[in-house]
Structure formats: structure tokens, C-alpha cells
Amino acid sequence: MNGFFPMIDLELRPHRKVIPAGTELWRVHHSKYAPDQFNPKLSDIHFDGGRFEGTVLDPYHSLYLADDPLTALAESVLRSRPFERPVGMRRIPYRTVWQRSLSGLRTRYDLHLVSLIEGQDLAAVCQDATLLEDEGNYARARRWSSEIRAQAPDAMGLVWESRRNRSRLALVLYHDRFEDRDGGPLEVLTDTGIADLGSQEGMKRANEILEPLRAEISEPVWQ
């Protein structure tokens, strides 16, 4: 750590969940990144950025995953997408999948994560469901991620129940918690996933995956 954290006088008692070695996980990512590459982007302290990304005050790189392809897609593309009348489908703008890929990976070794799945897990870090539900205050969530990191220096990331595909899991890994290990935490599964979600074939396959959640990627409108 760089000395900025912890900055609260609350004692956190994080619960742990282990994702075993050999577990298959899924990720939607920008196609310019390798499937197992951590996102080097840091979020703004107060405004733009992902829920649990690092900032200049705590500059870790992040990698978001889910426990199945549907959840990985849902977490990436279904934010604030309403069911449209009269057919009750959720239309996903093409721009959300352009230059993006869906990749399958397998854990090389056990991942020791802080669990935010149950109410008691959230209470253990002095939080409630707002930490995961509030779409308007990601800065607070990033701040709390750093508090958890400071008080759980062995934790490799966080795991929680997906908001967009309930009962399934989403997780984020912290790059600096793997620096003392040989090789990265994830092995890329070849011949799986969708290399180009924005292609005709990629959209077709993605829409087949998304169908149980009544969601569909819209065809691009070229100007």
C-alpha cells in the first residue's frame, strides 16, 4: 500500500470465499486486451470508472469475471436496460459490444477472495447491499474496496452475487496480489467464447446466450 489507506476507524472482519484451482470463469473485455490481461486503467477518485477499480490513491489493476458466460455478458451489457413495450425485450445498443470479446478462462490456483455474497458478508465489512446496488456512487464503492484491501492484505479480490443474473457470481481480482506467484492466476481456454461480439456471428451467438434474460443486441446502424 502507499500510505493512504486505511483511513477509517472501523474494524472490518472480512469473510473469505475460495474459488478452487481449475474453476472455469468468464470475462467480457476489450478485444485489444488478452483474455487474461488485467485492465491497466485507473478510475477517477470521484467520478468516472468501474465499481471496484483502482485509483491513483490505490493504483491496482483490475480484472472482472463471472462464473458463467450469461452472467459475464449480463454484467457487461445489461446495466440500466429496461424491458421495452410491447414485446418485453431489453435492447442492447451495438456500441456496448463493438470491439469486445467474451473469453473463457480457468483458475491456475485457489483464489482467496473477500465474500460480499450474503448480508452477513457485507455486514462483516460494515456495509449493506447499497455497496453493490447503488449505480450512482461508484466512487464510494472504489473507496471501500481499498479499505477492504488494506484490512485484508491476503485477499486476491472480491466476489458478490450478480445484480443482473441473481444467484450467479461476479468477481474482481487485484493484480498486485499475484506478483509473488509464478504465472498469472488464469489460463486462457482456447476454442471457447466469442472473439468478436460485434460481428454477425458473434452477435448471433451472444443473443442465444442472452435469450433467457430477454435481452438482445441491436443491429448496428451505419451512417
Rank of each mutant, 00 (worst) to 15 (best):
G183Q: 00
V221F: 11
M89Y: 12
R85G: 05
F4M: 10
G49I: 10
M203K: 07
P86F: 02
P220N: 04
E187S: 09
Q99V: 12
G183R: 03
R79E: 12
Y174Q: 08
G49F: 01
W160Q: 07
G54R: 04
G119F: 02
A129Q: 15
W144T: 10
E133H: 15
G54T: 07
E53N: 06
M203H: 01
W160T: 09
S31P: 07
P20L: 10
P69H: 03
A150L: 12
D58G: 00
A129T: 15
W98A: 10
H175Y: 07
E161Y: 01
L173E: 06
E53Y: 00
L65K: 05
R177I: 09
L213D: 00
P93Q: 05
R95K: 12
F178W: 09
E53F: 04
L63K: 02
N39V: 05
P59A: 07
K17D: 08
R214H: 10
E201A: 15
D128N: 14
I209V: 15
A72S: 03
A124C: 05
T23S: 15
R16G: 13
I194K: 02
D196H: 08
Q99H: 14
L122C: 08
E53M: 00
D121L: 02
Y64F: 10
A72L: 04
I19Y: 08
Q37S: 02
F83K: 13
Y33N: 10
K41T: 14
L42V: 09
P40A: 04
R205E: 03
L25E: 01
A141E: 10
A215M: 08
T55S: 11
R90N: 08
T23Y: 09
H46F: 12
G119V: 13
I19R: 04
G183Y: 05
L171Q: 02
A195M: 01
A72D: 03
R163N: 14
S43L: 06
L213S: 01
P93A: 00
H15N: 14
E75W: 09
P14Y: 04
A152D: 00
M1N: 06
E147P: 00
S162W: 03
S76Q: 08
P82V: 11
G88Y: 03
I45T: 13
T96K: 07
G184R: 07
S31E: 11
P6S: 04
T190D: 11
Q120T: 14
W98D: 05
R51C: 11
W144R: 00
G119M: 00
R142Q: 11
V28C: 11
R164T: 13
Y174A: 09
L105G: 04
S76W: 01
I209S: 05
S76T: 15
E118R: 12
P153I: 12
E211M: 15
S199W: 07
A215G: 08
L73G: 10
A155Y: 02
N2W: 03
G183F: 01
L63V: 03
V28E: 06
R16E: 13
E211C: 11
A139P: 04
D176K: 10
V97R: 00
I148V: 13
E161M: 01
E161D: 13
T71G: 07
E219N: 13
R106H: 13
C126D: 14
L63R: 06
R164E: 15
